[in-house]
Design a protein around this nucleic acid. Structure first.
Lengths: 344, 344
DNA sequence: TTGTAAGCGTTATCAT
DNA sequence: ATGATAACGCTTACAA
């Protein structure tokens, strides 16, 4: 149990009276080495408790078999689902995954990018922070042709593969559904417009209104950071509006929840007086009363797809001929918060 | 924008007509180097777009500044909170974090441990899988004195620092509360007993019953894997019991939720006919109807503490004189699912 | 205050 | 089928 120095291929070589290169080849199952010595090498390696020093190999091969992930916040169901999906694929392809959270701060995001680059990750999967409006911290990667894949909070300014949910259609379907349920004045609580996902959800909302022949009333549109507090602020503001909304499409479930809780406090009935639809299908949405209608985004699948695309790029080397933006389907889940009881 | 080969300290050295070692020292702010050359070096480094190759440094210094995390499942609120806490501290101490999920499979857990060791992580933070009953995959780390910290699902068999929530007291308080609320026959839906956390929660339950002078009836105790389906199975079984329980203490919130949903279906009123308390304070517990009484575990703080303890160990080198088990306080959160309405 | 040179543990090239 | 040797890019005695 004493702290021994690690066994290296040289130790194995010495023991077997062969050269280190043969050992290296043997361990890597190089067919140049005769089957018998290969076996012998692997056996002795095992016996001597040999653990390859991957750092050394990495230095030599200029690969790390590591994928870096940058995202705003780990502790959010959607994001942790994505991580889970990435990890799943990465693990099966022999890649490790290192994760950092930007906490939605530009400074931290930039510093993380630097660090991951210095660690020579083979590729990067990113969802940018709410505050991020400049993108020079990713230039490092584009210049050196380190593959990147963006997901969810993607940016137009960078050429790369992107995985997004169909935010536009999600926003459209949510709003359309509310209109079908009898909502005339449908309000929208949206996120910061520097993020494309929120622009898209907003666009879906507006189009659905217009196509239904309903006016798009700017006083019924609120933008904020979609936290629980923001949601409460927003619903308070909407309730003060001369035209009280019949329905609200919220750009995430957290906000939808605040709205519902506030309306409950105010004794305004959901869905009878005001209907609500959220976005993301957080675990709580199914079980809160009334259960929250929402748009499902396939987080785990998005993670898998992102990892798959990234690893493909890493393996093929050289820029892909063209970058694709993969739009994953979203699904409207209709629950109580938007279903008017049928008159009996 | 062409793919250039990376600038190294040698390139900088050549440009400045000094030696590579001076550059190395200069970049590391070694006080031996005169302030002026240090500045000069750093400036040219910046100008030349130098990015240190951390792999090379790692190989040389035999440190990676990387912490490995092994846990059953990323996509669970408690675990992602812990990760978030670990990442927070690690980042501020200059450590990267690599995460792998065992999916509660022993084989995968063991393989991950191997890989992380080969990657020479400086330390390991682990919560073991439900199936894990052998621990030889960690021997690698103990033998080479690579620091490890276990959290939540810890094991007696390994000497290391451990961070746990006060599961015993949590179980005790939950049960005591149910008894105070008028529960005589309190049932328990618990987890697999190879995990200490579930043994402790069970022990707390039993002691609370005994101290209250109530019988511990084995037919009111069920053990399973605490999934949503398991919860439904368990409540079905309990309802068939000749003595129907007045209250149920569930070892996690997921199970508590299934119980509540099933009882709602059966039109059995919670809490009036059966009271329920869960464990973990998942986000949904607060907002489900009836809201679920539960035991709060400080996930984020546990993560911070684990990282802190690990990094301390990494820095001081050599075994700590003795290993501590840090028990973080748990808090009973009383909500609707266990509060009998007062008779008016 | 700076330079020289060795070495971390691999893999890859060129011999044999 | 195997060996010798030179990298990979950095740090660190030891020397000057």
């Amino acid at each position: 149990m004493t702290k021994q120095t690690e066994t290296t291929i040289h130790d194995i070589a010495k023991r077997l009276n062969i050269s280190a290169s043969t050992v290296s080849r043997g361990l890597n199952d190089n067919p140049l080495i005769s089957k018998s010595t290969r076996l012998l090498i692997q056996l002795t390696a095992q016996e001597m408790g040999y653990r390859p020093n991957i750092m050394a190999a990495n230095l030599r091969t200029r690969k790390t078999n590591t994928i870096g992930i940058i995202l705003p916040l780990i502790n959010r169901h959607f994001f942790s689902s994505v991580i889970s999906g990435i990890e799943d694929v990465a693990y099966n392809c022999g890649f490790a995954v290192t994760i950092s959270q930007s906490n939605d701060q530009y400074e931290k995001e930039a510093k993380i990018a630097q660090t991951l680059f210095s660690n020579r990750v083979d590729g990067l999967i990113v969802s940018i922070g709410m505050q991020t409006k400049r993108f020079d911290h990713f230039r490092l990667f584009t210049e050196r042709e380190v593959p990147m894949v963006f997901f969810d909070r993607v940016v137009d300014e960078i050429e790369a593969h992107k995985i997004v949910a169909d935010d536009y259609l999600g926003g459209y379907k949510a709003t359309e559904h509310l209109i079908e349920q009898g909502g005339l004045w449908v309000a929208h609580i949206g996120g910061p417009l520097n993020l494309k996902i929120y622009r898209d959800r907003l666009a879906g909302y507006k189009d659905a209104m217009q196509i239904a022949g309903l006016p798009v009333d700017e006083s019924l549109i609120v933008h904020n950071s979609l936290t629980r507090t923001d949601g409460t602020q927003a619903i308070k503001k909407l309730l003060k509006n001369p035209q009280r909304p019949h329905a609200i499409f919220c750009a995430n479930d957290t906000t939808a929840l605040s709205v519902i809780l506030h309306l409950r406090e105010m004794r305004i009935k959901v869905p009878d007086e005001i209907m609500v639809v959220g976005f993301s299908n957080e675990p709580f949405s199914e079980v809160v009363t009334p259960s929250i209608s929402t748009i499902r985004q396939p987080g785990f699948e998005m993670g898998r797809k992102a990892a798959d695309l990234l690893i493909r790029q890493i393996r093929q080397k050289g820029k892909p001929s063209r970058y694709q933006t993969i739009v994953m389907p979203t699904e409207l889940i209709i629950r109580e918060s938007s279903t008017r009881r049928l008159p009996e």
